[in-house]
Nucleic acid binder design. Structure first.
Lengths: 245, 245
DNA sequence: TAAGATAGTTGCACAGTACCACTAAGAGGT
DNA sequence: ACCTCTTAGTGGTACTGTGCAACTATCTTA
């Protein structure tokens, strides 16, 4: 306990180093349902959690990855082909037992991808092993590899909390959308209905969207189409939607 | 690029592993000033950043540390003697260049410690090398080791953002405090004055504090003393203090 | 007794949401 | 042509919490 500045002791570099991974929780919305992309682990019994569903991720490659975010973007691009999603660092989980191969720490990110850019996981080498899963409650209804269920739960909690006061659901929609569709996205993530009037007032009072000179037709009154003013940066509101406490 | 499931490839375990560290941004408030605890790095020129101030932290010890949070708590306890602070994960920073010894990733935490429990850094082996620094703007007015200035900046940004809608400043105060002192803590962190009336209404409307049957005297009207109902869990408000957008 | 200082309250204006009712504009059936 | 259904979009009142400012309360010190 005398060593208060371990970085100063060169021999520490020879100490055992933890495993370092990056995992990405990728959310999308299809048919008014929130979904998350999972990959199925191989059946090689020598590997941990064979056959289990897991978050896309893996070891940091110190030769390929310039930094953690680049590593997360690489995983996401490999799985979905999307290069510029909304990407946010979620947190890190590290302990001696989450991976049977040793002390490991994972850096978790969560991404929101537009529903028109990924209808199906990307075709490719192991693409058959990746699939969208419906989110039900705080998970996907089945156990996941490692502590990924816990990470997914944290991602959902973060997402739902931020949806109360940010424009995050807009990143789950295609480039052009109606205010009705945006409200539906909010309601899907939150799991409760919102007041139409207050919702529209709030959205239009911010600098979030701009109308495009088009409408969406249908078996009823056409709706004005909007686009995001910024495809990457969310807007923060001053209030939450509904007093909850 | 064909390998989409690197965890399934055993030989990866032999790959080079990044260095893994934990750093803690420890905030306290003394005399209505926000301060952060820093440690001075040794002067051994073989080590990176000799003589520079740095955040308390160091390598994860896979034998001692059960998980990341335990590691952060260990660093904090070694430096301040405090065992149960408010502790929140801040984020992680990892890239190939932040540490000249190799690809490294740090897990950063930030802690809020009560002003009456740490007037001075703990005495001990290297205690002389630890000191409280006044926060000015987004830093401490001098360069720090590694990317610690960036981490400190992120911690301040997070703290100031959350102070707008949470009870975090309460964790910087002693066990018993007046509402005036609490308001002063908010104002110190935010750097702007708040309305007394609205502040009191907000605080008392939540389940944050309970009065203790004591008052604090002085050269004026005595003030009611309060204590936190929960010493660890913050309260979230529905609104921010002042519309800013 | 007055002055000074901080504690704590009260009243009014204003902003934004909740709630709810209303109008608008299309498709499709009769 | 008309009615109905459906979703888009607007308007009006009530309520809540903050901004602002003035007011009262209670202590010490001179």
């Amino acid at each position: 306990m005398a060593d208060l500045t371990p970085r100063n002791r060169t021999h520490r570099l020879a100490f055992e180093r933890p495993l370092v991974t990056v995992d990405v929780v990728i959310f999308a919305m299809h048919d008014a349902r929130l979904r998350v992309l999972l990959v199925k682990r191989g059946y090689d019994a020598a590997e941990p959690f064979p056959g289990r569903w897991a978050l896309p991720g893996g070891f940091v490659d110190v030769d390929k990855d310039a930094d953690l975010e680049a590593c997360a973007l690489r995983k996401l691009r490999e799985k979905t082909g999307i290069a510029t999603p909304y990407l946010e660092q979620l947190g890190s989980w590290g302990d001696s037992r989450r991976d049977p191969r040793g002390w490991s720490a994972t850096h978790a990110y969560f991404a929101l991808v537009p529903s028109d850019e990924v209808d199906a996981p990307r075709s490719g080498a192991n693409a058959a092993a990746a699939a969208w899963h419906d989110v039900v409650g705080s998970g996907v209804g089945e156990p996941l590899a490692f502590d990924h269920a816990q990470i997914l739960d944290a991602a959902l909690e973060r997402l739902r909390a931020k949806v109360e006061y940010t424009s995050l659901p807009a990143f789950l929609l295609p480039k052009e959308f109606t205010l009705g569709e945006l409200q539906k996205a909010y309601e899907t993530v939150l799991g409760r209905p919102l007041e139409k009037s207050a919702f529209r007032t709030r959205i239009l009072a911010t600098d979030l969207v701009a109308p495009v000179p088009k409408v969406r037709g249908g078996p009823n009154r056409p709706a004005q189409l909007y686009r995001l003013k910024s495809r990457r940066t969310p807007v923060f509101f001053q209030r939450t939607f509904k007093p909850a406490g």
